[in-house]
Design a protein around this nucleic acid. Sequence first.
RNA 1: GUGGCUGUAGCUCAAUUGGUUAGAGCACCGGUCUGUGGCACCGGGGGUUGCGGGUUCAAUUCCCGUCAGCCACCCCA
Length: 433
Amino acid sequence: MSRAALPGFRDFYPQEFAERAYVMDAWREVTRRYGFVEYDGPPLEPLELYTAKSGEEIVGQLYVFEDKGGRKVALRPEMTPTFARMVGAKLNALRKPVRWFSTPQLFRYERQQKGRLREHFQLNVDIVGEADVAADAELLACAIDVMREVGLTSKDVRARVSDRRLIGALLSHFEIADKDQPLVYAVLDKLDREPRDVLEKRLTDAGIAFHTVGSLFEAVASRDLDELRSRLGGMRALDGHFETLGRYFELLEALGVRDWVQLDLSVVRGLAYYTGIVFELFDNEGEFRAICGGGRYDDLLATLGGTAAPALGFGMGDVVLGELLRSRKLMPALEPAVDFWVACDDDALLPDVMSVAAKLRGSGRSVEYSLKGQQLSRQMKAAASAGAGQVVILLRDQWSGGSGTVTVKTLADGTERVVRSDVLLNFPMQDNG
RNA sequence: GUGGCUGUAGCUCAAUUGGUUAGAGCACCGGUCUGUGGCACCGGGGGUUGCGGGUUCAAUUCCCGUCAGCCACCCCA
């Protein structure tokens, strides 16, 4: 019998749990500022919910089994289908635009590696019912503000944005057949990981003219809109897309996040359902996988739920973000802390210690004490390592069965006060030192 | 799913060309400092050297398998 967690699953010891809570608190805090409200769905769903969207091949990557009622079910690998179902069912009744977020634990049966486990928590933020590019700007700004919330700056993280419609228009202009588009996207995705000549050959082998490949690569190398415009300025079919992206960047400027964002047409989100602006957040060192990815998926609700509505959203996992924060020394360490430690210099006073502890707890303070008789110096050590703000010391010569006094010591500065035991409860709490 | 690298206490690491009861620091628990902490000193618990085979008089050390982790690929969240 193995004592380890299953591969790709994590035991959250207090330190790890504190880290997870830190990240998830940041998620909730930022989404709250943007007016998003939280929802959740079942962790177990009918298998068809996922095969309908992604086909049968996805089954190999899911935790699937048959329940006792003979239903084929799967642990949720992503939140979007659940979200689409929930929103779709009540779309007419919901105030638009819908702004919801969730922090589900998701599961995927795949070989684990850095930044990628078989289970993770993922912030999902979605907007439904607004086609204007302002919604796209709002969404990206929210993702970026999460970065800020955990102490990252535009020097640490960059948002790379592309536009599916622009790429589509570009490929049409280059007269690249629809059947070749998946190949083109695959090549774009590998642009900074594989040698250019190898990628060029893949496209020319597929029958795309060499000069077309050259023009495509040149266009995609653009890192801002003006550059792209000057390279493709002659193409009237692209004007509308330039205009949209131009407004997008303007609005990102207005939201105060423009310096985090860079045009990058090589961003290819794997999911086939994106229809407009897409983005990914990466660490600037290129050390980790994408921290976050999202974009506009205007057709998905119609595909899944039947009701058409413009929509967009992003997902941000806790694994890569956690790795990045730890490597940048931005992940807070767990500091034990209690308001009071109650100690005594006589084992016979243990019931009195417990009684004092109970009263302090009754007034809302966090209190610990030695559960067995220990010499006072041990108790003081224990108090210090528990991060106690103050130690209440019952000395047998002062205590007088509760009618006397106690000594209250503030550990941070070593100061002591002797107080009547009956006024102890009025003590203000001190910062834990 | 494919390939490569790695695997000794909770953590970081030791262990002479394979050689006898596998060590240290930190952490944890306790003792002294004659009863108020963070120091110092002393002591203790904790390892079937990932697991299973093989070679050998002898394996932590060499070989094979397996499991796990890391990295790359595939794919994506």
